[in-house]
């Protein structure tokens, strides 16, 4: 499948951004933990957390971009996304990770690890939409 276009840089990854969890609790983006996402998805009723394993990370013709191929969910659906190299994903048990953590830290002041093949990222799907 063709990769989806790179999104523009969203403001909520900036260090200090206030994030509201599903139970109403407010946390800074840099303080979020794996449990926060899991519990929020459980409360929401409409969203389901999926495990998305990084299978490939390739360069992109677009500047400062990479194409990441994930295996999503229990059926390991193959999904490719084109993202800016500083775009952070939340890795289970590890926290924010990007293809270029130095650039993420430079732009967002968000402490970040290097996203690598085999990392399991948090992603969402809508559940039971019939």
């Amino acid at each position: 499948a063709a990769p989806t276009p790179a999104p523009s840089l969203p403001p909520y990854f900036m260090k200090g951004s206030i994030i509201q969890l599903a139970d109403g609790e407010l946390k800074r983006v840099e303080d979020l933990r794996t449990e926060d996402f899991i519990q929020s998805a459980e409360i929401s009723g409409e969203l389901k957390i999926d495990s998305s394993t990084v299978e490939r990370i390739d360069g992109s013709p677009a500047p400062n971009s990479a194409i990441i191929q994930f295996a999503v969910g229990e059926h390991r659906v193959q999904v490719s996304v084109e993202v800016l190299v500083e775009y952070p994903f939340f890795v289970f048990g590890q926290g924010w990770s990007s293809c270029c953590p130095d650039r993420t830290t430079q732009l967002f002041e968000l402490s970040c690890a290097k996203l690598s093949v085999g990392d399991v990222c948090i992603s969402l799907t809508l559940k039971n939409l019939k």
């Binding site: 403001p11 509201q20 929020s40 659906v77 939340f90 948090i122 969402l124 809508l126």
Partner: peptide, 25 residues
């Protein structure tokens, strides 16, 4: 008068990508 600056609050799901097409169970 100086109005207090409001701090934006973002919903948690904004930070998580939707990576898979929706599937029925």
């Amino acid at each position: 008068n100086v109005e207090p600056r409001s701090v934006p609050v973002f919903p948690w799901h904004s930070l998580v990508p939707f990576l898979a097409p929706t599937q029925s169970d």
